[in-house]
């Protein structure tokens, strides 16, 4: 489950050379002075990872696109306040986490009823996804599709915080300490959220196990 790309998110800038970090700071400085092309370059450095995170968090291309835009507009508007001593990636991923968290919270309050879960259109994405995976025989493909569909529904039953922590842990392969930092909470609180998320998923998916 923890694929290379996920780990890259955590390790990318710890291993990068000082030269790269300096180049990035120069880029940020230019962007802070209003240089649009520098800002665009900065976006290109990180936007694939940001899109992957938002997509995994909401599992809908349309919503992921909205969140992507919201993240980078926020970054654009507040870049002036970013201090160059801090690590840009951490700051950026915190913005991503906040934007996704707010979105999940609004979504939750809009549809307290799990009615959306049954709507056909909602599940297209999971199905398309399962269909596309190469190398599976038909039964495996069918099962993967079924699990996707059920997981999709089960994830909607989690609280926004539980869902965030679960997605960051399970899909992004991040360490709980880092997740706590991103979500502005303690490692202990992140552990509790993960525990509750897994408990709920276990209940919802018990017949598949």
């Amino acid at each position: 489950m923890v694929d290379g790309a996920c780990l890259e998110l955590v390790g990318k800038h710890e291993t990068s050379r000082e030269g790269e970090a300096e180049a990035e700071r120069a880029l940020i400085r230019r962007a802070q002075r209003g240089d649009r092309s520098a800002f665009d370059t900065l976006v290109r450095l990180y936007d694939q990872e940001v899109l992957r995170m938002t997509l995994r968090m909401v599992r809908s291309e349309e919503e992921a696109q909205d969140l992507y835009q919201e993240v980078f507009l926020k970054v654009y508007r507040s870049l002036g306040r970013f201090r160059l001593e801090s690590r840009f990636s951490t700051w950026l991923y915190r913005v991503v986490t906040n934007v996704c968290f707010d979105h999940l919270r609004q979504q939750k309050s809009r549809s307290e009823l799990p009615a959306r879960a049954g709507a056909d259109g909602e599940l297209d994405y999971a199905q398309a996804l399962a269909d596309d995976r190469p190398g599976l025989n038909p039964e495996q493909a069918l099962r993967a599709r079924e699990i996707s569909r059920r997981l999709e529904v089960a994830l909607r039953q989690l609280s926004p915080r539980e869902r965030m922590v679960f997605e960051l842990k399970h899909c992004q392969g991040m360490k709980l300490r880092a997740i706590g930092e991103l979500c502005g909470t303690s490692e202990e609180a992140a552990k509790n959220s993960l525990f509750r998320a897994v408990q709920k998923l276990r209940q919802d998916l018990s017949d598949l196990v």
Binding site: M1, D47, L51, R52, L55, E61, L129, R143, A144, L201
Partner: peptide, 15 residues
């Protein structure tokens, strides 16, 4: 079981 579940990957078109 959770690990069998495919992870959404952004398509180039979406990007």
């Amino acid at each position: 079981v959770l690990s069998e579940c495919p992870q959404p990957e952004p398509t180039p078109e979406l990007l």
